[in-house]
Write a protein that binds this DNA or RNA. Sequence first.
DNA 1: GCCAACGTTGGC
DNA 2: GCCAACGTTGGC
Length: 135
Amino acid sequence: MAKWLAKSEPYKYSWDQLVKDGSTHWDGVRNYQASNNMKAMKIGDQAFFYHSNEGKNIVGIMQVCKEYYPDPSDEKGRFGMVDFKAVKPLKSPVTLAQIKASKELEGIALVRQSRLSVCPITDKEWKILCKIGGV
DNA sequence: GCCAACGTTGGC
DNA sequence: GCCAACGTTGGC
């Protein structure tokens, strides 16, 4: 089972909103690498929800509930999206500063490719982040 | 198919 | 608000 991390700016779509909605379409991705990552997602894969810009922290865990399909908001029809549902929040959100400070997490895609909005997480990184986050 | 110009993301 | 990193576009 693969693990992922997806970013959203809280003012656009926040974790609280996802919890309220139950699930959401992860639309608006306009980057091939990010889109390809979503294409590789399978039902049941888990992903961290990361707040970019404001917060800069991982706040929750979500799960893929619908696999890759075309994003209707992309009029050129090039990009797709998946659906996520909220699983649970982290007891304590993990900040970017904490991630950068961790020796074990150096090399994490989130830091290495800071502009990639959907990135893979290794099992090892997942475990460490869960531990720091108290889940 | 290369590369310069330009646009966007996201941390600081 | 600035700027570095990097993806995309378009001329050649």
